[in-house]
């Protein structure tokens, strides 16, 4: 059984059909890429999968459970985390604190416990700090632990957002253009990080424009164009797919 099953998902904005009857599956332990030209509906698709938007029709089922209509924080608690195309970090908080916020659904301390600083609050904080430091090391951002997010270089910010998403202990991680704005070296280290994350047992869905990265890391690719799924398969087949070359890569197909 697939971890995530998307069926006939449709979202209209006025006259525009941003996502048009898209169906696909994501299998546990794999990295799946979603590609398509700008405005193809990829980010809308992500929003529909994470409770940030509601579909007009269709279903999203996660581990056999329908998650359409769930509020975003419930989706996180259910086991799906995400990052954003425009990173949404907490600029005034340190990198470590950003990751600690990501652990929100896994910690228990409430207003009363927090204000009174009960012994179990202190113990929970200590465990949380250890785990947050581990996650920063996992993405290679440990040297920025005490730096405010606003002062962290661009490439690191993307990795920090990934660490924050991982802090929720998701089973499924959705990354929206993680390589955008990264240089070659940073993209290389990103692909290593993605493998590390998968090896920790997290399933990944990546929306990405960087074809090098997509072809390298993904086991399966879904191609979206004008809201419709036009192809799905392993990278080697997608590269040769006539419809994909036509719609997505156009005349410049050679650069795949």
């Amino acid at each position: 059984m697939s971890l995530l099953a998307i069926r006939d998902l449709t979202r209209r904005f006025g006259g525009l059909v941003a996502v048009d009857g898209v169906s696909f599956d994501v299998h546990e332990g794999t990295i799946k890429a979603v590609i398509g030209p700008n405005g193809a509906g990829k980010s809308t698709l992500f929003n529909l999968m994470t409770g940030f938007d509601r579909p007009d029709a269709g279903a999203v089922s996660f581990d056999g459970r329908d998650i359409v209509g769930m509020r975003p924080h419930k989706v996180v608690a259910a086991g799906i985390s995400r990052t954003f195309q425009n990173t949404q970090l907490f600029e005034e908080l340190t990198a470590l604190e950003n990751v600690l916020v990501g652990m929100h659904t896994r910690l228990r301390t409430g207003l009363v416990g927090g204000a009174l600083r009960m012994p179990w609050t202190v113990a929970e904080e200590r465990r949380a700090l250890e785990r947050a430091s581990y996650l920063l090391r996992l993405v290679g951002a440990e040297q920025y632990a005490q730096t405010h997010a606003a002062d962290i270089p661009h490439g690191m910010r993307r990795l920090l957002e990934i660490a924050r998403a991982l802090a929720a202990e998701p089973r499924l991680l959705l990354l929206d253009e993680p390589a955008a704005g990264l240089n070659n070296f940073e993209t290389q280290s990103l692909s290593k990080t993605l493998y590390k994350i998968r090896d920790e047992g997290v399933t990944l869905v990546v929306v990405e424009h960087d074809m090098g990265l997509v072809m390298e890391v993904s086991e399966e690719i879904v191609v979206i164009d004008q809201g419709r799924k036009i192809a799905e398969g392993p990278p080697l087949l997608i590269q040769k797919d006539a419809a994909v070359i036509e719609a997505y890569l156009g005349e410049e197909g050679a650069y795949v």
Partner: peptide
């Protein structure tokens, strides 16, 4: 921390659960 997060980025806070 959640309060301060909310102040920083509401989207980010939602995505953090």
């Amino acid at each position: 921390r959640a309060m301060r997060a909310l102040h920083g980025s509401e989207l980010g806070a939602l995505a953090s659960g």
